[in-house]
């Protein structure tokens, strides 16, 4: 399933696959928020698949924003597992009780 992005306020919601093939689309979706000084949330709840290309874009987004607060939230099971196994688990917001719901794309 291709990547689908939805921007609402300071939150961008991702669903589908954040992979090499959708890298440009992911960058384009995040770019408007790059200079936003307010807190920005990237909702990963709808992601079914993420690879290194997707991970690097997210990490670069967070590091480039520097001190501006950035949250990677609501990561579903496949995303969380990939981040954690690769030593990147702490980049994600901790899982919450409603993460499962958002992971299935049922709302934040």
């Amino acid at each position: 399933m291709p990547l689908h992005t939805e921007l609402a306020g300071n939150t961008v919601r991702l669903s589908g696959e954040a992979t090499l093939y959708d890298g440009k689309a992911l960058k384009a979706a995040l770019e408007p928020l790059l200079a936003n000084p307010e807190q920005v949330s990237v909702n990963l709840g709808g992601l079914q698949e993420i690879d290194l290309a997707g991970i690097q874009i997210l990490l670069s987004f967070v590091t480039t924003r520097g001190d501006a607060p950035t949250r990677l939230v609501a990561a579903g099971e496949p995303t969380r597992r990939r981040f954690q196994t690769c030593g990147l688990g702490e980049w994600l917001e901790p899982a919450t009780a409603d993460s499962a719901g958002t992971a299935n794309g049922q709302g934040e």
């Binding site: 960058k27 690097q56 670069s60």
Partner: peptide
Amino acid sequence: RLPPFKELEPGQVYL
């Protein structure tokens, strides 16, 4: 080696 966001090429490996 992770570059700033605008310089990042999605298909490259940086980590």
